[in-house]
Amino acid sequence: MGKFQLITKGLVKENPTFVLLLGMCPTLATTTSAINGMSMGLATLFVLVLSNMAISATAPYIPDKVRIPAYIVIIAAFVTILQFIMQAFTPDIYKTLGLFIPLIVVNCIVLGRAEAFANKNSVVDSACDGIGIGLGFTIALTILGLVRELLGSGSAFGYKFIDGDGILVFVLAPGAFMALAYLIVLFKKLTAKKDE
């Protein structure tokens, strides 16, 4: 597989949110607006690429039985580094995303890619895989955030174009489940047509 395919497969065919249905917690919790969704996606992308590379480089030296704890430590280290960087340079976004930044440690996407891809592929390939999956996740979260923001508060990326309130429930918890359900259905429909 070429490097380009490695990146593009994460966007549609193996989209972590709409197809693999992984990392649902941040997907539902942080997508109250398009900006928040995108920030969460990019934060995950950062950890995913670095941890994929580090795990791919160290995998041959890690005994099989302790590989999972070792991976978790590596991932947690990168997550903490991300926390420092965000606190220093984007404190507002860090505050908005709150607990879900440290919770990237237990995001199944990150550990999942380490197990399924990074520990058997080269560093460069693993980086490409991380970028692809991370971008797929970012795009999915941005779309979900945009839909919820449009319906829920009548704005897009913070730019308000409807006076007054939207359908408030879409910003709240039930709207998160509902919007995601319909987006998955839409995604299924669109990709099914493509295959024909």
Binding site: P174, M178, A181
Partner: peptide, 21 residues
């Protein structure tokens, strides 16, 4: 058909979340 599995589960969760609201 397209709602089978996870999508219908999410719709159910949405209604359950509304009840908890």
């Amino acid at each position: 058909k397209v709602f089978k599995g996870i999508p219908i589960a999410l719709v159910t969760a949405s209604i359950l979340a509304m009840a908890f609201m």
